[in-house]
Amino acid sequence: MPVSGSRRVLLGTGALTLVLGGLLLTEPAYASGPLGKDKGADTEQSGGGDSNGIYATAKIQYSGAVTKDGGTGNMTSSDVNWTPPPCWYAPYLGAKDFKKKMSGQIESAKNTPGMGGTAGAAIGEMQRHYEDEYGWTDTPGYKDYNVDKDGEGMFWAAVENPDEPDVLKRSSCNDLPFWVDNGNAPPARFKQAIKPEILAALAYQRMQLPHTKVTLAPAATTKVNLPTWAWLDKAVFGEVQATAALNVPGFSIQATTTAKPVSLKLEPGTADAETFPASGECVFNADGSIGQPYAKGDAGKTPPCGIRYLRSSGDSVFKLRATITWKISWTGTGNAGGDLPDGTFGTTQDVTVKEIQAVVR
Rank of each mutant, 00 (worst) to 15 (best):
S329G: 12
H129K: 00
M75P: 07
K100N: 11
H129D: 11
T331H: 11
K100E: 13
V159R: 12
H129I: 08
K143N: 15
I324P: 02
G33Y: 06
S51N: 04
K110S: 08
P304V: 10
S51V: 02
A121Y: 08
L264H: 00
S316V: 02
T302F: 02
G104M: 04
G238T: 12
T325I: 06
Y134A: 13
Y145K: 08
T331C: 04
K223Y: 10
S171V: 03
V359R: 14
A245W: 03
G70W: 12
G332H: 13
P84H: 04
A109V: 01
P293E: 10
Y89S: 03
F345T: 06
L199V: 01
S263E: 10
I106M: 04
D69S: 12
S63D: 01
R361P: 15
R361Y: 03
G40I: 10
D38E: 14
S279V: 09
Y134T: 12
F237G: 00
E274K: 15
T344K: 15
D166W: 04
V214Q: 05
G33M: 10
D138T: 15
L310V: 01
P2K: 15
G314P: 04
A65Q: 07
G306Q: 07
N247C: 05
G47T: 08
V19H: 10
A244I: 12
Q254E: 13
G306A: 13
P249L: 07
L246M: 14
L209F: 07
V167W: 02
T215K: 13
A259E: 06
T348C: 08
I198S: 07
A201K: 15
G12R: 00
G64D: 11
I290C: 15
T302C: 13
G250C: 10
D148R: 14
A299G: 05
R311M: 03
D79K: 03
P28F: 07
P210T: 01
D50Y: 09
C173G: 06
V240D: 06
W179R: 02
T112V: 08
A41H: 04
Q292K: 12
I290T: 15
P28Q: 01
P277M: 12
G153E: 10
C87G: 02
E27F: 13
A158Q: 00
A336Q: 15
T76H: 08
T256L: 06
S172H: 00
L176E: 01
G183F: 08
S6I: 01
P304I: 09
L18M: 10
M75G: 05
T137V: 14
V180N: 09
L176C: 02
T139V: 05
S4W: 10
Y92G: 00
N335R: 15
A220W: 09
P341A: 02
A185L: 14
I106R: 07
A157I: 00
T215H: 09
A109S: 10
V360D: 11
D298Y: 14
S172D: 13
G117N: 02
V159K: 10
D144S: 11
F178T: 05
Q45R: 14
D175W: 09
F318G: 01
G70S: 13
Q127Y: 10
G346P: 01
E133Y: 14
D166T: 00
P28M: 06
